[in-house]
Nucleic acid binder design. Sequence first.
DNA 1: TCCATAGTTCTTTTT
DNA 2: GAACTATGGA
Length: 750
Amino acid sequence: MPTASVLDSLNEEQRAAAGHVSGPALVLAGAGSGKTRTVVHRIAHLMDAHEVYPQQILAVTFTNKAAQELKERVEGLVGPAAREVWVSTFHAACLRVLRTYGSNVGLESGFGIYDDGDQLDVLKEILKSVAGLEDANPRALRAAIDRAKSHLWTPEVYAERAAERYGAVVSGMEVEQIVEVFARYEQRLKQQNAVDFNDILGRTVELFDHHPDVLDRVQQRAVFMHVDEYQDTNAAQYRLTRQLSESYRNLMVVGDPDQGIYAFRGADVQNILDFQRDFEDAQTYRLELNYRSVPPVLKVANAVIAQNSDRLDKVLKPTKDDAEPVRIHQAADHRAEADFVARMVEQELAASGGDLNRFAVLYRTNSQSRVLEESLRRAGLETRIVGGVGFYERREVKDALSYARAALNAQDDVSWRRVINRPKRGIGDTSVEHLTRFAQRHGVPFSAAVNRHEEVLKGTAAGKKVQAFAELMQDLQEASASLPAGKFLAYLLDVTGMIEALKQEGSFEAQGRLENLDELRTAVEEWESEHGGSIAEFLDESALMASVDDSAVKAVNQGEVPSDAVTLMTLHNAKGLEFPVVFLVGLEEGLLPHRSSTGSLREVEEERRLLYVGLTRAEEALYLVHCDQRMTFGRTEPARVSRFVEDVPPALLRYVDAFGEATGRTAGRPKLGGLTWRSPALSQEPAGGTRAPAPGGAYKGGETVRHPKFGEGKVVGVSGSGAKTELTVVFPEVGAKRLLVKFAKLERVH
DNA sequence: TCCATAGTTCTTTTT
DNA sequence: GAACTATGGA
């Protein structure tokens, strides 16, 4: 007797997976195959047809954004009951467990979370006192320690494993020394009642290992468990998954081995490949029908990923109608590349309308975003940058939150030392050094040394100032306990003198910082009115949030980031998202694959998967761009098209010129010269002076020209030659424009 | 103690 | 090119 089911709207593949009820299941879901849709419907189906309580369902994702989306979609299907489903990232879920049960593993209430910057501070402090490592690179150490901890290795285990895996020297440092620093680092964090990101997972594993009663309680919330992006789980996440699912075994993992892009932080694609070994009775479901991208895009994506040797055979099958081929453009340099993107956005907009939210520009490294942003803005196109230097990493914001952390945790040396002289209050490095040494000698926190400044500084001039600081902190400690989050932050900004100091400074930059603090205050207030909660809870949430458009930060950006904008982000950030029109830029050797990831086949294949992720974001149109030369570290160097592009059958790509017109050239080894145009900034100094002489009648800087649309303007730069001569012209109305003489119908004005 | 300046290092990617 | 660090003078 068939009745209407929530599964009716799914295709056959999806329905099979979503209809899975008990026991372990592996869902191999290709890009754009409706993975989230399947999970959402599965949850709804459990509640609907099998009377599973929402409180028994756990779904773990990798990003806050993915969690948010999943939550909303489940609610859309089953209504308010969905709010009882536990949807969370691994980190947020574990943090919640630790806040409740952390005392079982030596975490005192109010423990702090150290981000990358805090980690570096701790390491720098340690390096001062370890002989032979005075000038070791703290970043390299952090990388080594992070890697170890993502495998759940203690310093002792690391000593063994590192020796056998990498030999006696890692990144130019003796393994023995790394182990020494690692051990001290762990000790410091413990003393400071703080955890780093890896600890959030690692301590939870430890807690579950040693406290079966706690594990049992949490398992009750995970009777039906889902893990998204399972191919990106590291050892800690793998262990957590096993622990939480071991009693009920209703575990559904979803993922795509071809989209594993986090090996660098310990993720192991083997986890998903081994799922059937781990759970012999696992059902496997495959989703291969792609609903996202037009066939030309899928053909390129399939061709790229097929080059990987270490993978399951899988092809994305199109469901959409055929469309324009994937376009590829060779630009002279990063500025020309950015201008090309801006121009294509304008053209697409003119041709088919729609808004800027349809467009995304994806790149390998954050540093590529600057030029792209400039060009788009110059063309009058709004941009939205996802990720990058986060709001919470800006100095003034970090200072303000450090005050809050210091007030909440007297053992947090990193925060105390950070704020003691912010704003400048006459407590210099020497005094801080004295206080630090006193604290070390007596085995007490830095804050204790501050409170006992009379013993340390013996009534010197600095002593008076430290006295005032001690009183300030005392005051803040009390305020943090009595004031709600928003009021506390406002109070803090006031009494610490942060606002006052910036007002005094009066510079343009200080103005910006003031605005940021104001935004922070708004964010805290809005967060408080939405979720309620203390400043401590706000700190937790903001600590786990890197990306600019996650919930608590959204408020911050509402005034600033337009709702209609081109999205700019790294390829890593793009995973799970989709856009009608996608630009992949910087497809060059050294960038993709990145120069630091070409050492082994494993690394190169991960880079290829990264490209695959980027390609499969596009719904309707896809542009690939690479440059002849690229600036790195402020130096311009020749660049070659990525090997990944050369592997694509030329017939699948259509080369276009700077204006999007087909060049007739097919992909493959480009002829040098004549095909690209040059940006003025670089052509001022042609390499080797080989530039062809300008033909007679060429434009010169300083001349006035008339453009049919922009009116009269002044030539400020000339570059390229022959048919590719390009001018930079400043127009009074629209500002600087770059124009190809061949296309722009210019007239000389005398 | 603070500030200006010159030098240096740096870029993968993120919860 | 930018952000961070060391340095020397006020």
